[in-house]
Simulated scan of single mutants.
Amino acid sequence: MLLETAPGPFSHSEFIFEPKVDGHRLIYSQQAEKVRLFTRHNNDCTRQYPELLLSFDSDIILDGEVACTDPETGLNDFEAVMSRFSTKQASKITQLTHKLPATFAIFDILFYQGRDLRKLPLVERKMILHSLSLPSSNFGVVPHIEGAGEELYTQIEAMGMEGVVGKRKDSQYLSRRSKDWLKVINWSYADVFITGYKKSEFGWLAAVPDPTGKMRPVGIIEHGPSPKHKQAFHGVCQQLVTGEDKNHVYLEPRIQARVKMRSWTKSGLLRIPVFDQFIV
């Protein structure tokens, strides 16, 4: 079940609200005491997370996020969990199990003790989920509150966490995107210069000045601009071309834009930048 995006924080008596965990989606499936782990795209990632291959008291299917915690900030570390996900070598996986332990943050239960639970209202699924005995401290249930989405968002924003998810109390579990589940992202913002664009598909090259005044690339803007924004950009950019290669056309850093993003990466790149507006 996938999330739609809400235009902003909201409160509603028919919704529960929970913190959005900054990791990657994980389906935990235990059948005949054998545990398998899958991403939302049905990619098997069982071998990447040996600390999560522990059994419950019955066959079960759970939905949640696998995450790693930054020991310095106590916040979810998206880059750390991506490092865990991309590691394939057995010895390295064992090493990272101790260095970057994974946590499975569970927010839904789809099957338990021979029953398909997907048609139950969410609040009933939550009750069953909270009654489980978890197999280790690497498992946790995502907490939630009723109604007070704006209050929770204020707390999430102050802590620098990713955002909030609102879910209808009576929602069934649907294997598609649904407005019954809504995400509110705690965006960060940055002002960047557009220093070029991709030839084959849409993408604006973004950069910021370093302490010496030289432009430092920080990523590619692939989402956000309307057709009018794109038209305005192309009306100006042809006067600013400085060169090109097989994949890109390069521009003088004269066009400035504000982008929203999830965060800065540790290597100084924009994480999932989305165009917000031109700065004139």
Rank of each mutant, 00 (worst) to 15 (best):
K183C: 07
L120S: 06
L96C: 07
D210C: 03
Q256S: 14
G140S: 15
Y189A: 11
Q256T: 13
E201T: 14
Y197G: 02
H144E: 12
D44R: 07
I61S: 08
M215H: 07
I279D: 08
D63S: 04
L174E: 12
G163D: 02
K214L: 12
I128E: 10
Q95C: 11
M159L: 13
S13P: 11
Y250E: 06
Q239W: 12
M1E: 14
Q231G: 04
V280A: 13
S178K: 05
D77T: 08
N247Q: 15
V66M: 08
L53R: 12
R254I: 13
W264Y: 13
V274S: 13
L134G: 10
D59Q: 09
L251N: 05
P211A: 09
K119H: 14
V236H: 10
A90M: 13
K167C: 06
V164M: 05
D63E: 10
M82Q: 13
Q277N: 14
S29T: 13
T97A: 15
Q172T: 10
T39H: 02
P227F: 01
A6P: 05
S188N: 14
L182T: 00
L3I: 08
M159W: 07
S86K: 14
S131P: 11
K167Q: 04
G203K: 07
R115F: 14
R177F: 03
R176F: 09
R40L: 06
H12C: 15
G243F: 05
D22Y: 02
F233D: 07
